[in-house]
Design a protein around this nucleic acid. Structure first.
Length: 451
DNA sequence: TGAAATGTTGGGGCG
DNA sequence: ACGCCCCAACATTTC
């Protein structure tokens, strides 16, 4: 018996039922296909993270007597070739739920013996439905049902000791790319970070996760996106943390982290059930908003030159590291959409071009949430005040000073809004817009769209 | 997982 | 002692 393990977004050996299924009583050929249709939309930085992840996966496989085969091209064509060359009878793959993946796999399954295994999520999108058979569109009832049907244990399995491989299949080289300083790729690194987070920080997550000046989040998103860490493992550990918590606060913190993982799954389900959100507002009336879309203001936002210190700090953090704190994502997204009145899709695209974790579902869900165009109760009038957010979540200006060095010499009572104290700086811009004015303008634009 | 506008209450300064 | 004003603190409504 010979099988192919088609790796897509499960770059790991542990907690991998697809690999287990493929290698059960079989010689298995691990394959990753560089699909030009996906790669052209993937910026160099995220490609590098992926390639480095493939490099470590190849090494992990080699240690177990196996080897990774890389091929570039159309998946259907390459799989057909590999089946012919190797004599494999079946292709196993972890099911993926983006519109592109669903369509691709459906077409391939019509021609080739493809078996999809649902282990990316805790629940398949078709398994969490309302009593009328329709998908949930509001997070809280979704999460209630999601939790109530969660199995007692998710049984994450360790990586197999050995993997028997089909010999003699040639591989393209893995494209070499420089390594991210702050986010080294790979399963071992992901597990190391998870362990460190579970050791202590998870128990203060509820309070610290919103703080821009504290490493309170897990920062696991790039690893979760590529499956270097399985979401199911993360959920299982979250549940363990909840059960071993000794006080109410640490229990609530662990639950909050679990809820964040459920948000991730929620948005994957939403995109699966409502693929139109990829191009349009979930709430169609908001497709009528008259965006200003000023190109100069968009450029200032992208480069972290808006004159709002907390916004600029966040945008520069992303440029410098390929990652942005989640609270900061909400602040800059609100600023782009509600203060500059620029189409949320522009921001969504810039995030996809710059984030290592750039994930169609989570990113789209987050942007539509902020824009108030999305699924959950995110009313159009929920407009962040960047100064209040800044003072609340970075009280001493530590985050600002780190990413906007021009302001590093300013006191905490000045740094959030230097212009209010009539401080002008030679190398830092004046605010691109007045928040109070912009707020009114946006309320008006949204009101017009609804009428 | 919002913030501004508006309303209410109560303490303190002061005539 | 009392009424008036101011305003902070908190609550509610509105966008």
């Amino acid at each position: 018996m010979k099988t192919i393990w088609w790796i897509r977004r499960d770059l790991r050996l542990g907690d991998n039922l697809t690999l287990q299924a493929a290698s059960r009583e079989a010689q298995v050929l691990p394959v990753f296909i560089l699909d030009p249709r996906l790669l052209t939309g993937t910026p160099a930085r995220r490609q590098a993270f992926l390639f480095n992840g493939l490099q470590t996966l190849a090494a992990d496989l080699q240690m177990r007597g196996s080897n990774l085969v890389i091929r570039r091209g159309d998946p259907a064509k390459i799989l057909a070739e590999l089946i012919a060359d190797s004599g494999a009878q079946t292709v196993f793959a972890e099911e993926d739920f983006t519109p592109y993946a669903v369509q691709r796999d459906k077409a391939i399954a019509e021609q080739l013996p493809l078996t999809l295994i649902q282990r990316q999520l805790v629940h398949h999108p078709m398994a969490v439905l309302k009593s009328n058979g329709q998908p949930y569109t509001i997070y809280t009832p979704f999460s209630k049902t999601w939790k109530s049907i969660m199995p007692g244990s998710l049984h994450p399995t360790p990586a197999p000791d050995t993997i028997s491989t089909i010999p003699g299949i040639t591989s393209d080289p893995i494209p070499a790319r420089s390594t991210e300083q702050l986010f080294p790729a790979g399963e071992a690194e992901a597990n190391k970070r998870l362990t460190s987070f579970l050791d202590e920080r998870i128990y203060d997550y509820g309070e610290n996760r919103n703080r821009l000046d504290i490493d309170g989040t897990s920062a696991l998103s790039p690893y979760l996106h590529f499956g270097m860490l399985g979401l199911r493992s993360a959920v299982d550990y979250a549940r363990q943390a909840i059960s071993v918590s000794h006080n109410e606060e640490s229990r609530k913190s662990s639950q909050t982290w679990l809820n964040e993982l459920i948000w991730r799954e929620f948005y994957i389900h939403i995109l699966y059930h409502f693929p139109h959100v990829q191009k349009n507002s979930f709430r169609t009336q908001y497709d009528q908003i008259q965006w200003r879309n000023d190109p100069d203001e968009f450029e200032a936002w992208k480069q972290g030159q808006t004159g709002y210190p907390v916004v600029d700090a966040a945008m520069r953090q992303m440029l410098a590291t390929g990652w942005m704190h989640n609270r900061a994502r909400m602040i800059v997204a609100s600023f782009l959409v509600k203060d500059l009145l620029i189409d949320w899709r522009w921001g969504e695209h810039w995030f996809m071009q710059n984030l290592l974790d750039g994930d169609v579902a989570a990113n789209n869900g987050g942007w539509q949430w902020t824009a108030g165009t999305g699924t959950d109760a995110a009313p159009y009038f929920r407009i962040f005040n960047p100064l209040l957010q800044s003072k609340k979540f970075d009280p001493q200006g530590v985050y600002i000073k780190k990413w906007v060095p021009e302001l590093a010499h300013l006191d905490a009572n000045i740094i959030h809004a230097p212009w209010e104290k009539n401080i002008t700086l030679a190398n830092y811009p004046e605010p691109v817009v007045d928040h109070k004015f912009a707020r009114q303008r946006t309320l008006e634009a949204y009101k017009n769209a609804r009428s």
